[in-house]
């Protein structure tokens, strides 16, 4: 650490009563799992997490639980925006400051860009958003167009869903489809029909928020099937583990979809833990909680495991991880984890 420690030493005799501070973390501060070189920490990706609505405590817990990367899909924020300008600032935030916030915890942050199905119903807003999307969708770290699709399956939703599939084709990006919460089964079928009408390869499409009723058709038609383990509404951990047992892990992706609602940022890690303790093979857990998301969104060319496995390849300007002593030596925020912070650290 490139910083002076104020201590009760030779040149600080006036302040001998001051406590020591700025102590660099030692081995003893570390989680025993990390310290023990024989224990390999499981790595996870949460490919659907609205971190803009979450706290730094969540980031800290996710990093401690093994989340190395996450994807933040553009969505609404619980209430409709009424101006395109607020939409622009939202897209800028998930591309910019949110990525930077994640990097402080050693988590790589990616996003998807799109006009969501709810706000697609405000035609004047939707037209203005469609006009600005091309400006955002090609930026570094954008791994898909999404989340797009249907909410109430209106004409306007349909129009902008189709227009954005065309944009994804133009920019050679995968598509993240949000399936409707109401009339889900028919809405999911219709979403895939529309994708096929526009000639996009099912392997370039991640169909999200699946459940027991939709999984068969989505997998059968060759799409990636994502599941949002979101307490009480979408999918629970126990149900997810039952699905993993019945269907295996091919093209199955687990995410948390954590957002401003009552949701669980550790859903991926907790589902993986439950799956392993329930006898799901480790390889299937690895696929559904890490590798499949990487393969699906990796088709954008913007997400690669080298970003976290060989951090030197990270664009160091965007990360605290690349900080060397010569560059200024900030203490990494995530350095030692026992799952709790002391009152001193919290202060």
């Amino acid at each position: 650490m490139l910083a002076l420690r104020v201590s009760d030493g030779k040149y600080a005799t006036e302040r001998q009563d001051r406590p020591l501070c700025g102590r660099p973390p030692t081995e003893n501060d570390m989680n025993p799992d990390i310290k023990d070189s024989t224990a390999i920490r499981q790595m996870f990706i949460d490919p659907h997490a609205h971190m803009i609505s979450r706290t730094t405590d969540d980031y800290e817990a996710m990093a401690a639980a093994g989340i190395v990367a996450l994807i933040e899909p553009a969505f609404w924020q619980g209430q409709p925006r009424t101006h395109v300008a607020t939409y622009e600032d939202y897209l800028s935030a998930i591309l910019g400051f949110e990525r930077f916030r994640a990097s402080q915890f050693g988590i790589r942050h990616y996003c998807t860009i799109g006009l969501n199905s709810k706000e697609a119903n405000d035609e004047s807003l939707a037209e203005a958003v469609m006009d600005i999307l091309p400006r955002f969708a090609a930026k570094d770290g954008v791994v898909a167009i999404g989340e797009i699709g249907y909410d109430e399956q209106t004409e306007l939703e349909d129009r902008y869903f189709r227009a954005q599939i065309e944009l994804a084709k133009e920019l050679e990006l995968p598509v993240l489809v949000h399936t409707p919460h109401r009339d889900k089964k028919a809405g999911t079928t219709r979403s895939m029909d529309v994708c096929e009408e526009h000639g996009i390869d099912p392997r370039m499409v991640i169909v999200d928020h699946n459940n027991e009723e939709t999984i068969d058709e989505v997998l059968e038609r060759g799409y990636w099937a994502a599941f949002s383990v979101y307490p009480s509404t979408k999918m629970g951990k126990e149900r997810m583990v039952r699905l993993m047992k019945s269907y295996g892990a091919e093209r199955v992706i687990v995410n948390s979809a954590c957002d401003w609602g009552i949701s669980e940022p550790l859903a991926v890690a907790k589902t993986a833990e439950l799956a392993l303790s329930s006898g799901v093979p480790a390889e299937a857990v690895h696929l559904s909680c890490y590798a499949n998301a990487l393969a699906a969104y990796g088709q954008s060319g913007q997400i690669s495991d080298s970003h976290w496995l060989t951090p030197m390849e990270i664009d160091q300007r965007e990360s605290f991880a690349g900080n060397s002593i010569l560059r200024g030596g900030r203490e990494p925020v995530v350095e030692h984890h026992d799952g709790r912070r002391t009152p001193n650290e919290a202060a």
């Binding site: 800028s92 400006r135 570094d140 770290g141 300007r317």
Partner: peptide, 10 residues
Amino acid sequence: ARHADIGEQC
């Protein structure tokens, strides 16, 4: 700059 992400701002 109005639409720039961090790398673009840099």
